[in-house]
Amino acid sequence: MTIVVTTPTGHVGSRVVRLLLQAGVRPRVLVRDPARLDPATRDLVDVRTGDMTDTAFVREATAGARTVFWVDPTPHTGTDPNAASERTATGLVDAARAGDVARVVLLSSVGAELRGGAGHIDALGRIEESLDATGADTLHLRCGYFFSNLLLSLDDLARGVLTTQFRPERPMAWVDPRDIGDVVAARLLAEDWKGRVVQGVHGPEDLSFVQVAEILTGVLGRPVRVEAVGDDDVRAALGSAGLPPGAVEAIAGMAASTRDLTPEQPRDVLTTTPTTLAAWAYARLRPMLDEAKGGEAAA
Protein backbone atom coordinates (compact mmCIF):
# COMPACT_ATOMS: atom_id res chain seq x y z
CA MET A 1 0.00 0.00 0.00
CA THR A 2 1.62 3.27 -1.13
CA ILE A 3 0.14 6.40 0.43
CA VAL A 4 1.31 9.87 -0.58
CA VAL A 5 0.94 12.76 1.88
CA THR A 6 1.29 16.36 0.72
CA THR A 7 2.09 19.26 3.10
CA PRO A 8 3.40 16.74 5.69
CA THR A 9 4.63 19.50 8.01
CA GLY A 10 1.27 21.29 8.25
CA HIS A 11 -1.32 21.17 11.02
CA VAL A 12 -3.18 18.29 9.35
CA GLY A 13 -0.42 16.60 7.36
CA SER A 14 1.95 16.15 10.28
CA ARG A 15 -0.78 14.36 12.22
CA VAL A 16 -1.56 12.13 9.24
CA VAL A 17 2.09 11.13 8.85
CA ARG A 18 2.42 10.18 12.51
CA LEU A 19 -0.75 8.08 12.49
CA LEU A 20 0.27 6.26 9.31
CA LEU A 21 3.65 5.44 10.83
CA GLN A 22 1.95 4.12 13.95
CA ALA A 23 -0.24 1.95 11.71
CA GLY A 24 2.85 0.39 10.15
CA VAL A 25 2.73 2.32 6.87
CA ARG A 26 5.76 4.11 5.42
CA PRO A 27 4.17 7.10 3.65
CA ARG A 28 5.67 8.90 0.70
CA VAL A 29 5.80 12.61 1.55
CA LEU A 30 6.12 15.53 -0.85
CA VAL A 31 8.14 18.41 0.56
CA ARG A 32 9.97 21.46 -0.72
CA ASP A 33 12.40 21.45 2.22
CA PRO A 34 13.08 18.09 3.95
CA ALA A 35 14.72 19.93 6.87
CA ARG A 36 11.25 21.03 7.96
CA LEU A 37 10.20 17.45 8.63
CA ASP A 38 10.12 16.28 12.23
CA PRO A 39 13.59 14.76 12.81
CA ALA A 40 11.99 11.85 14.66
CA THR A 41 10.05 10.80 11.55
CA ARG A 42 12.37 11.91 8.73
CA ASP A 43 14.08 8.53 8.38
CA LEU A 44 10.78 6.66 8.60
CA VAL A 45 9.17 8.18 5.51
CA ASP A 46 9.91 8.12 1.78
CA VAL A 47 10.86 11.72 1.02
CA ARG A 48 10.29 13.23 -2.42
CA THR A 49 11.74 16.73 -2.64
CA GLY A 50 10.24 19.21 -5.05
CA ASP A 51 7.75 21.98 -5.71
CA MET A 52 4.08 21.05 -5.77
CA THR A 53 3.48 23.70 -8.41
CA ASP A 54 5.73 21.66 -10.72
CA THR A 55 3.36 19.39 -12.62
CA ALA A 56 6.13 17.03 -13.71
CA PHE A 57 7.32 16.62 -10.12
CA VAL A 58 3.83 15.83 -8.87
CA ARG A 59 3.26 13.29 -11.65
CA GLU A 60 6.54 11.52 -10.87
CA ALA A 61 6.14 11.70 -7.11
CA THR A 62 2.60 10.29 -7.10
CA ALA A 63 3.06 7.64 -9.79
CA GLY A 64 2.02 4.18 -8.65
CA ALA A 65 0.43 5.39 -5.43
CA ARG A 66 -2.65 3.63 -4.14
CA THR A 67 -3.92 6.80 -2.45
CA VAL A 68 -2.89 10.46 -2.39
CA PHE A 69 -3.84 12.89 0.35
CA TRP A 70 -3.94 16.26 -1.37
CA VAL A 71 -3.79 19.59 0.47
CA ASP A 72 -3.76 22.68 -1.71
CA PRO A 73 -0.59 24.61 -0.68
CA THR A 74 -1.52 27.83 -2.49
CA PRO A 75 -1.32 30.97 -0.32
CA HIS A 76 -4.28 33.35 -0.37
CA THR A 77 -2.01 36.29 -1.14
CA GLY A 78 -1.06 35.71 -4.80
CA THR A 79 -2.27 37.65 -7.82
CA ASP A 80 -4.87 35.00 -8.70
CA PRO A 81 -5.00 32.36 -5.94
CA ASN A 82 -7.88 30.41 -7.50
CA ALA A 83 -6.12 29.94 -10.81
CA ALA A 84 -2.90 29.04 -9.00
CA SER A 85 -4.68 26.38 -6.93
CA GLU A 86 -6.17 24.78 -10.03
CA ARG A 87 -2.81 24.79 -11.84
CA THR A 88 -1.11 23.22 -8.84
CA ALA A 89 -3.64 20.37 -8.81
CA THR A 90 -3.12 19.67 -12.51
CA GLY A 91 -0.36 17.12 -11.94
CA LEU A 92 -2.51 15.14 -9.53
CA VAL A 93 -5.57 15.32 -11.78
CA ASP A 94 -3.50 14.13 -14.75
CA ALA A 95 -2.08 11.25 -12.70
CA ALA A 96 -5.55 10.19 -11.58
CA ARG A 97 -6.93 10.41 -15.12
CA ALA A 98 -4.06 8.28 -16.44
CA GLY A 99 -4.64 5.64 -13.78
CA ASP A 100 -1.30 6.31 -12.07
CA VAL A 101 -3.21 7.11 -8.86
CA ALA A 102 -6.12 4.95 -7.76
CA ARG A 103 -7.67 7.08 -5.02
CA VAL A 104 -7.52 10.68 -3.82
CA VAL A 105 -8.48 12.15 -0.45
CA LEU A 106 -8.88 15.91 -0.87
CA LEU A 107 -8.79 18.39 1.99
CA SER A 108 -11.72 20.54 0.91
CA SER A 109 -13.89 23.01 2.83
CA VAL A 110 -17.39 23.84 3.85
CA GLY A 111 -18.52 26.16 1.06
CA ALA A 112 -16.95 24.21 -1.78
CA GLU A 113 -20.45 23.00 -2.60
CA LEU A 114 -21.41 26.54 -3.64
CA ARG A 115 -19.29 26.14 -6.79
CA GLY A 116 -18.80 29.88 -7.05
CA GLY A 117 -18.74 33.16 -5.13
CA ALA A 118 -16.83 31.90 -2.08
CA GLY A 119 -13.40 33.42 -2.62
CA HIS A 120 -10.49 31.01 -2.54
CA ILE A 121 -12.82 28.18 -1.51
CA ASP A 122 -14.08 28.21 -5.11
CA ALA A 123 -10.78 26.66 -6.19
CA LEU A 124 -11.44 23.66 -3.96
CA GLY A 125 -14.84 23.24 -5.58
CA ARG A 126 -13.24 23.21 -9.01
CA ILE A 127 -10.56 20.75 -7.88
CA GLU A 128 -13.36 18.51 -6.59
CA GLU A 129 -15.00 18.61 -10.02
CA SER A 130 -11.72 17.94 -11.83
CA LEU A 131 -10.97 14.92 -9.66
CA ASP A 132 -14.52 13.61 -10.01
CA ALA A 133 -14.10 13.62 -13.79
CA THR A 134 -10.97 11.42 -13.70
CA GLY A 135 -12.74 8.18 -12.83
CA ALA A 136 -10.54 7.65 -9.76
CA ASP A 137 -12.13 7.01 -6.37
CA THR A 138 -12.33 10.42 -4.69
CA LEU A 139 -13.13 11.50 -1.14
CA HIS A 140 -13.73 15.18 -0.49
CA LEU A 141 -13.44 16.16 3.18
CA ARG A 142 -15.36 19.41 3.62
CA CYS A 143 -13.96 20.81 6.83
CA GLY A 144 -15.20 23.52 9.13
CA TYR A 145 -13.31 26.56 10.39
CA PHE A 146 -9.94 25.53 11.82
CA PHE A 147 -9.24 26.25 15.50
CA SER A 148 -5.71 27.07 14.37
CA ASN A 149 -6.97 30.11 12.45
CA LEU A 150 -7.02 31.79 15.85
CA LEU A 151 -3.23 31.61 15.86
CA LEU A 152 -3.27 34.22 13.10
CA SER A 153 -4.83 36.69 15.56
CA LEU A 154 -2.41 36.47 18.48
CA ASP A 155 -1.82 40.23 18.64
CA ASP A 156 -5.55 40.98 18.73
CA LEU A 157 -6.23 38.25 21.27
CA ALA A 158 -3.44 39.56 23.46
CA ARG A 159 -5.45 42.81 23.54
CA GLY A 160 -8.61 40.88 24.38
CA VAL A 161 -10.18 41.30 20.93
CA LEU A 162 -11.53 38.59 18.62
CA THR A 163 -12.07 40.17 15.21
CA THR A 164 -14.34 38.50 12.67
CA GLN A 165 -15.93 39.06 9.30
CA PHE A 166 -18.53 36.39 10.12
CA ARG A 167 -21.80 37.13 11.89
CA PRO A 168 -20.87 37.16 15.62
CA GLU A 169 -24.10 35.49 16.79
CA ARG A 170 -24.41 32.78 14.11
CA PRO A 171 -23.07 29.31 15.00
CA MET A 172 -20.75 27.60 12.52
CA ALA A 173 -18.59 24.48 12.41
CA TRP A 174 -15.21 24.78 14.19
CA VAL A 175 -12.71 21.91 14.12
CA ASP A 176 -9.29 20.92 15.47
CA PRO A 177 -6.88 20.19 12.58
CA ARG A 178 -5.55 17.18 14.51
CA ASP A 179 -9.04 15.68 14.43
CA ILE A 180 -9.12 16.24 10.68
CA GLY A 181 -5.83 14.34 10.54
CA ASP A 182 -7.45 11.46 12.40
CA VAL A 183 -10.28 11.28 9.86
CA VAL A 184 -7.84 11.51 6.96
CA ALA A 185 -5.64 8.70 8.30
CA ALA A 186 -8.65 6.46 8.90
CA ARG A 187 -9.88 7.03 5.35
CA LEU A 188 -6.43 6.51 3.83
CA LEU A 189 -6.13 3.16 5.59
CA ALA A 190 -9.68 2.02 4.81
CA GLU A 191 -9.94 -0.06 1.64
CA ASP A 192 -13.68 -0.41 1.14
CA TRP A 193 -14.84 3.04 -0.01
CA LYS A 194 -15.37 3.52 -3.73
CA GLY A 195 -16.53 6.13 -6.22
CA ARG A 196 -17.21 9.71 -5.17
CA VAL A 197 -17.62 10.32 -1.44
CA VAL A 198 -18.16 13.63 0.36
CA GLN A 199 -17.77 13.81 4.12
CA GLY A 200 -18.05 16.80 6.42
CA VAL A 201 -15.60 17.31 9.30
CA HIS A 202 -17.37 19.71 11.64
CA GLY A 203 -15.73 19.49 15.05
CA PRO A 204 -17.62 18.71 18.26
CA GLU A 205 -20.24 21.48 18.06
CA ASP A 206 -21.24 24.57 16.12
CA LEU A 207 -20.05 27.77 17.79
CA SER A 208 -20.70 31.45 17.19
CA PHE A 209 -17.87 33.92 17.58
CA VAL A 210 -19.63 35.22 20.67
CA GLN A 211 -19.44 31.72 22.17
CA VAL A 212 -15.82 31.40 21.06
CA ALA A 213 -15.00 34.64 22.87
CA GLU A 214 -16.68 33.32 26.02
CA ILE A 215 -14.67 30.09 25.83
CA LEU A 216 -11.42 31.97 25.29
CA THR A 217 -12.24 34.27 28.19
CA GLY A 218 -12.38 31.22 30.46
CA VAL A 219 -9.26 29.62 29.04
CA LEU A 220 -7.10 32.75 29.04
CA GLY A 221 -8.36 34.08 32.36
CA ARG A 222 -9.02 37.55 30.92
CA PRO A 223 -11.91 39.08 28.97
CA VAL A 224 -12.11 38.54 25.23
CA ARG A 225 -14.69 40.51 23.25
CA VAL A 226 -15.88 40.12 19.67
CA GLU A 227 -15.33 42.92 17.19
CA ALA A 228 -17.20 42.53 13.91
CA VAL A 229 -15.77 44.06 10.74
CA GLY A 230 -17.62 44.63 7.48
CA ASP A 231 -16.74 43.16 4.11
CA ASP A 232 -15.80 46.55 2.67
CA ASP A 233 -13.58 47.30 5.65
CA VAL A 234 -11.80 43.96 5.22
CA ARG A 235 -11.28 44.59 1.52
CA ALA A 236 -9.97 48.08 2.19
CA ALA A 237 -7.55 46.85 4.85
CA LEU A 238 -6.23 44.08 2.62
CA GLY A 239 -5.80 46.49 -0.26
CA SER A 240 -4.01 48.98 1.98
CA ALA A 241 -1.65 46.19 3.01
CA GLY A 242 -0.59 45.91 -0.62
CA LEU A 243 -2.46 42.75 -1.62
CA PRO A 244 -3.53 42.53 -5.27
CA PRO A 245 -7.27 42.58 -6.10
CA GLY A 246 -7.37 38.82 -6.74
CA ALA A 247 -5.99 38.11 -3.29
CA VAL A 248 -8.33 40.61 -1.65
CA GLU A 249 -11.37 38.87 -3.09
CA ALA A 250 -9.96 35.39 -2.43
CA ILE A 251 -9.69 36.23 1.27
CA ALA A 252 -12.70 38.48 1.82
CA GLY A 253 -14.99 36.34 -0.32
CA MET A 254 -14.59 33.25 1.85
CA ALA A 255 -16.44 34.71 4.84
CA ALA A 256 -18.70 37.00 2.81
CA SER A 257 -20.24 34.09 0.94
CA THR A 258 -20.29 31.38 3.61
CA ARG A 259 -21.43 33.29 6.70
CA ASP A 260 -25.04 32.19 6.20
CA LEU A 261 -24.29 28.78 4.71
CA THR A 262 -25.72 25.59 6.13
CA PRO A 263 -23.19 22.87 5.22
CA GLU A 264 -24.36 20.31 2.71
CA GLN A 265 -23.35 17.51 5.08
CA PRO A 266 -25.45 17.53 8.28
CA ARG A 267 -23.93 17.21 11.71
CA ASP A 268 -24.04 13.53 12.64
CA VAL A 269 -21.77 10.74 13.85
CA LEU A 270 -19.72 10.88 10.62
CA THR A 271 -19.10 14.62 10.67
CA THR A 272 -18.62 15.22 14.40
CA THR A 273 -15.11 15.05 15.87
CA PRO A 274 -14.18 15.06 19.58
CA THR A 275 -11.72 17.82 20.51
CA THR A 276 -13.36 20.88 22.06
CA LEU A 277 -12.19 24.41 21.45
CA ALA A 278 -11.46 24.83 25.17
CA ALA A 279 -9.17 21.79 25.20
CA TRP A 280 -7.35 22.96 22.08
CA ALA A 281 -7.00 26.51 23.40
CA TYR A 282 -5.53 25.30 26.71
CA ALA A 283 -3.02 23.12 24.85
CA ARG A 284 -2.08 25.40 21.94
CA LEU A 285 -3.35 28.97 22.14
CA ARG A 286 -2.77 29.82 25.79
CA PRO A 287 0.92 28.74 25.81
CA MET A 288 1.63 30.83 22.70
CA LEU A 289 -0.02 33.90 24.18
CA ASP A 290 1.81 33.38 27.47
CA GLU A 291 5.10 33.06 25.60
CA ALA A 292 4.41 36.24 23.65
CA LYS A 293 3.50 38.07 26.85
CA GLY A 294 6.66 36.83 28.53
CA GLY A 295 8.74 38.03 25.60
CA GLU A 296 7.21 41.49 25.83
CA ALA A 297 7.91 41.65 29.59
CA ALA A 298 11.54 40.63 29.03
CA ALA A 299 11.94 43.32 26.38
Rank of each mutant, 00 (worst) to 15 (best):
T273K: 02
V198T: 15
D122C: 06
L19V: 03
L44F: 09
D232N: 06
P287V: 02
T49E: 10
A185T: 09
T271V: 07
A89C: 13
R267S: 14
G135L: 11
L21M: 12
W174A: 14
A89S: 15
A213M: 01
G10Q: 02
L139D: 04
D206N: 13
H11A: 11
T6P: 10
R159D: 15
G13A: 02
S153R: 04
S257W: 09
L21P: 14
T163N: 05
V234C: 01
L261P: 11
L44E: 15
D206H: 12
E129F: 02
A292K: 04
H76Q: 10
A250D: 11
T62G: 07
R126Q: 08
P39S: 13
E169D: 15
P223R: 15
S257D: 09
S109C: 09
A95S: 14
P266V: 14
V201N: 03
L30Y: 03
A256M: 02
G195K: 07
G13L: 02
L151K: 08
N149Y: 07
G294H: 05
L289G: 03
L162P: 09
V25S: 04
K293Y: 07
G295I: 00
L92C: 09
L131W: 09
A102M: 14
L243K: 00
E128D: 10
A299F: 01
E113V: 03
V29A: 06
D80R: 13
D176P: 13
L207K: 00
D268N: 14
